[in-house]
Design a protein around this nucleic acid. Structure first.
Length: 271
DNA sequence: ACCGGAGCCTGTTAGC
DNA sequence: TGCTAACAGGCTCCGG
């Protein structure tokens, strides 16, 4: 669901309305959503702090604040952020509302309650174990090859591991493996050098495509303004089981790996 | 250290 | 048609 491209799309939409704003209050209706402190403690600490940057690391949104703290939000499965006038009607499942100094509010809607809010002095408390940022210039083939050290699990599961590469979720993992021509069940330690190069290129390609298309509106995901992205119209394998592979015409297969639905072409992706 | 599986959640969908 | 059970997958935690 919200994976790197969807979070990046959210960050880009929120930057303009949030940069330079100061928090004036916090309301919370689901205390467990606040991971680092009680809602009262969060409010106490965040009020008066100005938003200096709006950024992303993996699937996390980062708001660096004038008091030195960083507000971190993870959307998980169903999280949705929007900035609206405080008079706007409240959508169902809105669990945390940040009031701003311009009569607007940053609202965190979260149907399945998996999303989390962190307020920390040191972002590494939350982000410390994340793997490399796949669209950053430092994500080279060499860097990816290093990440394979000591890893033996199946490629699909490895791509979902945020300590391997940050930001990939179920959709883009299946898409990347398709373009790299790698079967999702392949043990990581059996990849050839050529396959690692292909995987590096494929990861960047599918994430870049997702960002350009402003995310995949599969299931519930929509942009902060409620409109849909278009990546769902450009997927090669995800949720295309039984439909013909665009490359060879063979029906796309769906299996369960590590408890996750996995889609692949049995001809183009050799075991 | 690494791996796989359970658990957290609720709206939607599949199946009887 | 109406109900229940399974499913969806982000991450953390636990045991092997």
């Amino acid at each position: 669901m919200p994976e790197l491209p969807e979070v990046e799309t959210t960050v880009r939409a929120l930057r303009r309305p949030l940069l330079g704003r100061t928090f004036t209050g916090v309301r919370n209706y689901w205390p467990r959503q606040i991971a680092t402190a009680s809602p009262e403690a969060l409010q106490e600490r965040i009020v008066g702090q100005q938003i200096e940057t709006v950024d992303r690391r993996g699937k996390y949104l980062l708001f660096h604040l004038s008091g030195g703290d960083t507000l971190i939000i993870h959307l998980r499965m169903t999280g949705h952020l929007s900035v609206v006038d405080r008079e706007a009607p409240l959508a169902s499942h809105t669990h945390t509302i940040f009031s701003l100094d311009d009569s607007r509010e940053l609202r965190f809607r979260n149907v399945r309650k998996f999303g989390r809010v962190y307020l920390v002095a040191d972002p590494d408390e939350v982000l410390g174990k994340l793997g490399p940022e796949p669209l950053a210039p430092g994500f080279t083939v060499e860097r990816l090859r290093e990440q394979f050290q000591g890893r033996s699990k199946q490629m699909k599961s490895l791509l979902l591991d945020q300590t391997f590469v940050a930001g990939i979720g179920n959709i883009y993992a299946d898409e990347a493996l398709f373009y790299a021509g790698i079967h999702p069940e392949r043990p990581a330690d059996t990849l050839t050098e050529a396959e690692i190069v292909a995987l590096h290129q494929a990861i960047r390609k599918v994430l870049q495509m997702g960002v350009e298309r402003e995310g995949a509106s599969i299931d519930r995901y929509v942009k902060p303004d409620g409109s849909r992205g278009s990546m769902q119209n450009a997927v090669a394998v995800y949720k295309r089981s039984e439909q013909p592979c665009y490359r060879c015409g063979t029906p796309i297969r769906r299996i369960i790996l590590g408890g996750r639905s996995t889609h692949f072409c049995p001809i183009c992706q050799q075991a």
